[in-house]
Simulated assay, not measured.
Amino acid sequence: MATEHRALLLIDFQAAFDDPAAGSRNNPDAERNALLLLARWRETNRPIVHIQHSSTEPGSALRPDSPGHAFKPGFEPAAGEMWLSKRVNSAFIGTPLETALDRAGIRSLVIAGLTTDHCVSTSTRMAGNLGFDVILAGDATAAFERQAVDGTRIDAETVHGVNLASLDHEFCRVYDTETIVASICG
């Protein structure tokens, strides 16, 4: 893993994902790992981008007028850190993210966020397709259980694992937080 300058992209670390109605979730340490990345990026004065989902869907817990829209504690953007609101799964659609990164000369990203199979996967795929060199912090993401088309239940760990496997070496490289911190910020 190269040690070049990379931006940390934190996707949708929002209160809505703490609602038990969301169902069973894997990786209870995702937020702790993401906060370790965030702390290290801040300590080394590296660029950080916070993405916040602002749903327009009626009844969504991620609507701007909902308590679930708020950043989880510790994930609030600090002065000088970029914050962008998105309305769809990709952090690149309908936002100035690509332009802002280009203007800053950033072509390398480390991504962490919620959820692995939705906004994290979509944003990672787009970043890779747009030519960014992407590292995904696999242990700083999490997924919820899903129901398959045939009605069977897919547990959260399987959803998470299949998505990481689909992304790795196609759109990004998946590493754990410890490896990222040691290699990039060491």
Score class of each variant (00 low, 15 high):
residue 104 A to Y: 13
residue 153 R to F: 08
residue 160 H to F: 07
residue 175 Y to A: 08
residue 25 R to A: 15
residue 146 R to M: 10
residue 179 T to Q: 06
residue 170 E to V: 13
residue 5 H to M: 10
residue 31 E to Y: 05
residue 32 R to P: 00
residue 98 E to N: 11
residue 66 S to H: 15
residue 157 E to A: 08
residue 133 D to R: 15
residue 185 C to F: 12
residue 83 W to T: 14
residue 164 L to H: 03
residue 24 S to A: 15
residue 164 L to P: 06
residue 66 S to T: 11
residue 72 K to N: 04
residue 152 T to R: 14
residue 165 A to F: 10
residue 104 A to P: 06
residue 129 N to L: 11
residue 132 F to M: 13
residue 169 H to Y: 15
residue 81 E to M: 06
residue 94 G to D: 14
residue 90 S to W: 00
residue 2 A to P: 15
residue 177 T to Q: 00
residue 148 A to V: 09
residue 146 R to S: 07
residue 13 F to K: 05
residue 170 E to F: 11
residue 129 N to D: 15
residue 151 G to V: 11
residue 99 T to V: 04
residue 21 A to R: 15
residue 119 C to A: 12
residue 166 S to T: 12
residue 89 N to M: 06
residue 1 M to Q: 14
residue 60 S to F: 15
residue 132 F to C: 07
residue 87 R to Q: 12
residue 18 D to C: 09
residue 119 C to K: 03
residue 137 A to Y: 03
residue 60 S to Q: 08
residue 58 P to S: 09
residue 168 D to E: 11
residue 111 I to S: 01
residue 115 T to R: 06
residue 91 A to N: 10
residue 111 I to D: 02
residue 91 A to T: 13
residue 77 P to I: 09
residue 146 R to G: 05
residue 105 G to F: 11
residue 2 A to E: 15
residue 151 G to M: 13
residue 74 G to V: 06
residue 119 C to M: 02
residue 75 F to T: 05
residue 177 T to K: 01
residue 97 L to S: 01
residue 64 P to K: 09
residue 68 G to R: 01
residue 53 H to R: 03
residue 52 Q to S: 03
residue 43 E to V: 06
residue 45 N to W: 09
residue 108 S to G: 15
residue 15 A to D: 04
residue 53 H to W: 06
residue 39 A to V: 00
residue 32 R to V: 07
residue 184 I to S: 03
residue 142 A to L: 14
residue 39 A to W: 00
residue 65 D to N: 14
residue 52 Q to E: 07
residue 166 S to D: 13
residue 101 L to A: 03
residue 83 W to V: 13
residue 176 D to R: 15
residue 115 T to N: 11
residue 166 S to R: 13
residue 105 G to P: 05
residue 129 N to W: 09
residue 155 D to M: 13
residue 23 G to D: 07
residue 65 D to W: 06
residue 27 N to W: 02
residue 14 Q to L: 10
residue 60 S to G: 08
residue 45 N to E: 12
residue 44 T to G: 05
residue 178 E to C: 10
residue 159 V to E: 03
residue 68 G to L: 03
residue 33 N to D: 09
residue 121 S to C: 11
residue 177 T to D: 02
residue 18 D to I: 00
residue 62 L to Y: 08
residue 37 L to G: 00
residue 5 H to T: 03
residue 35 L to R: 04
residue 115 T to D: 12
residue 70 A to P: 02
residue 80 G to E: 10
residue 132 F to K: 07
residue 60 S to E: 10
residue 90 S to Q: 04
residue 151 G to D: 10
residue 82 M to F: 12
residue 13 F to P: 00
residue 25 R to K: 14
residue 94 G to R: 14
residue 84 L to P: 04
residue 179 T to M: 06
residue 63 R to T: 09
residue 6 R to K: 15
residue 109 L to M: 01
residue 16 A to E: 12
residue 132 F to E: 00
residue 16 A to D: 14
residue 62 L to R: 05
residue 21 A to E: 12
residue 67 P to I: 08
residue 135 I to F: 02
residue 44 T to N: 13
residue 48 I to G: 02
residue 171 F to H: 10
residue 62 L to G: 05
residue 168 D to P: 01
residue 12 D to V: 05
residue 144 F to K: 01
residue 16 A to G: 10
residue 92 F to K: 01
residue 28 P to S: 12
